[in-house]
Nucleic acid binder design. Structure first.
Length: 514
RNA sequence: GCGGGAGUAGCUCAGGGGUAGAGCAUUAGCUUCCCAAGCUAAGGGCCGUGGGUUCGAUUCCCAUCUCCCGCUCCA
């Protein structure tokens, strides 16, 4: 059921120009998608809503658009170079996947644990006379454990240092590591997965010119922290917001635009006085949830999910999850990032990244609370939530189905369709054209005279247009038109001079901030 | 990446060893004053791609690419 719904949404996205597979005529490019003409409108509207909520409505949050390409040392400082080069290995028996380095470390710890156990036993036996160092070298069993640990650990460290995957596999075999699920010792080759895409600067490929495409926008904010703070004269706490592309070489990109290799983030880093970070963490957690709920998304489809395993930089982390057709998944992350990033950059660059607090008269590295929404995920969440198949009465009053995208009017790609009731009447089409030419300066409108009026309404429903204005014979006499509301199908006859006001009010972002 | 399923018109799909169909959609014309209307006509597919078997492959076999489901990962 939900799998079918998901397929329907994917088909609808293509058929109505929201999302296309990248490079489709060349068989596509895995995990990359293009946004079609209505898709880009929706996406731009989501960005506008976020930017208004974050930058425009907070005097102490300012924008930034940092470059995708950055100095490679930034990714060294951020931990991405070291922390996201995972060697992975699969069990052939159970097909379970494991981190090779984690598995080896665990096996090595077990060996050390055996040695420690022997030592503890001996300590109890010999009491005060026990000489641990002597025992370690002279007891054959303990000495062997330690010897084994040292030699294998050395091989492990060497292999990791060189990125030698076959050597890692050899270590796994030497340690006789078995898959905990199947008990099998049959492993695939160890493979390296690099999270970041490489590219190079200049014409000559070499270590010096090696660059990464950013895997998150946040670092562009951190390295500009002082530039922005000084030029905008901000005092703590204050935030820097950025919307931009990021790239991750995902092991497996799946579920349509949910996990893509090229994607877009809407991030805000909020710089706070150390010690106040949890206060702000809670503030942003609630504030961001309100932002999502304001769009009319049912409460049952949004929830918090606390992180149990924290990333290397965080001391608290929570996801805002949305109930996608394939289950509850992360939509946005709110993270307390401590001073990890700024401190790392300060150390590696040798430049001070500190804030001078005039109140306490001291300088310190601020703590950071991050909010990070996946723009593409937001798009998919809105699309999933908006997609509705429902029965409505047809011309004879019988049931017919329609597919309608019930976007919040402020986010809908096209705001208003202008429809002359008949195509073969110059007076009707002429007046409709005049209305269209006037309204098009205010918002995205569509003029459509093709096909029966009912079909045109359905076409607009399929792309989520909130208002349809129809020009009929009465319009020629008294300058009134009918305006149809997408969700209720209700029509109201209004004077044509009122159209702009009604549509403008309906699509006003203001309603999202009530 | 592993296992399973799928790829035929823009969309949803049928078919089948002898170079392809339906419905909807699209375009044009006529008709029609309000929720997928009717009539007429047109355009659009080397049946995902490459190889093999065969006199002949879109159909059978192999490989590959892409998508879906599960496992796994997710700053």
């Amino acid at each position: 059921m939900s799998a079918d719904l998901f397929k329907d949404i994917v088909s609808h996205s293509k058929e109505y120009g929201f999302i296309f597979q990248s490079s489709e005529i060349y068989d596509g490019l895995s995990g990359v998608y293009d946004y079609g003409s209505y898709g880009v409108e929706l996406k731009n509207n989501i960005k506008a809503y976020w930017w208004k909520a974050m930058v425009q409505n907070h005097e102490n949050i300012v924008g930034l658009d940092s470059a995708i390409m950055m100095h490679p040392l930034i990714w060294k400082a951020s931990g991405h170079v070291d922390a996201f080069n995972d060697p992975l290995v699969d069990s052939k028996a159970s097909q379970k996947r494991y981190r090779a380095d984690v598995m080896i470390e665990e096996a090595l710890e077990k060996i050390m644990a055996k040695a420690d156990k022997e030592i503890e036993k001996a300590r109890k036996r010999f009491g005060d006379a026990f000489d641990e160092n002597k025992y370690k070298t002279e007891n054959p069993r303990v000495a062997e454990y330690i010897q084994q640990y040292n030699t294998i650990n050395q091989k492990f460290v060497d292999a990791m240092g060189k990125g030698d995957m076959p050597a890692l596999k050899a270590v796994i075999e030497e340690l006789e590591i078995a898959d905990p699920v199947s008990g099998s010792r049959e492993w695939t080759d160890v493979r390296q997965f690099n999270l970041m895409f490489h590219t190079q600067l200049g014409n000559i490929a070499g270590e010096e010119g090696k660059l990464y495409l950013r895997p998150e926008t946040a670092q562009g904010i951190f390295v500009n922290f002082l530039n922005v703070q000084k030029t905008t004269r901000q005092k703590l706490p204050f935030g820097i917001a950025q919307i931009g592309k990021a790239f991750r070489n995902e092991i497996i990109a799946r579920q349509f635009i949910f996990r893509m290799r090229e994607f877009e983030q809407m991030e805000m880093q909020y710089f706070v006085q150390p010690g106040t970070e949890m206060e702000w963490y809670n503030y942003w957690k609630e504030t961001r949830m309100k932002w999502h709920r304001a769009l009319g998304t049912p409460e049952s489809k949004l929830r918090f999910h606390d992180h149990e395993n924290l990333a290397h930089y965080a001391n608290a982390a929570v996801d805002v999850q949305f109930d996608f057709p394939f289950g509850f998944k992360e939509l946005e992350g709110v993270h307390s990032r401590t001073d990890f990033d700024l401190r790392s950059h300060q150390e590696l660059s040798g430049k001070k990244l500190q804030y001078f607090d005039p109140e306490t008269n001291e300088s310190y590295v601020p703590y950071v609370v991050e909010t990070s929404v996946g723009l593409d995920r937001m798009f998919l969440a809105l699309l999933s939530n908006a997609y509705t198949e429902e029965n409505v009465p047809d011309a004879d009053g019988k049931d017919s189905t329609r597919i309608v995208l019930k976007f919040h009017p402020a986010l809908a790609p096209v705001k208003c369709a202008i429809l002359p009731l008949l195509k073969n009447n110059d007076d009707l089409t002429g007046l409709a054209r005049k209305i269209f030419d006037d309204l098009k300066f205010n918002f995205l409108c569509q003029y459509d005279e093709k096909d029966a009026i009912g079909r045109r309404y359905r076409r607009q429903d399929a792309i989520g247009t909130p208002y349809c204005v129809t020009i009929d014979h009465q319009s020629l006499e008294d300058q009134t038109v009918t305006i149809r509301e997408r969700d209720t199908l209700k029509q109201e006859r209004i004077h044509m001079s009122k159209i702009r006001e009604i549509v403008a009010d309906g699509i006003d972002f203001r309603h999202l901030f009530a």
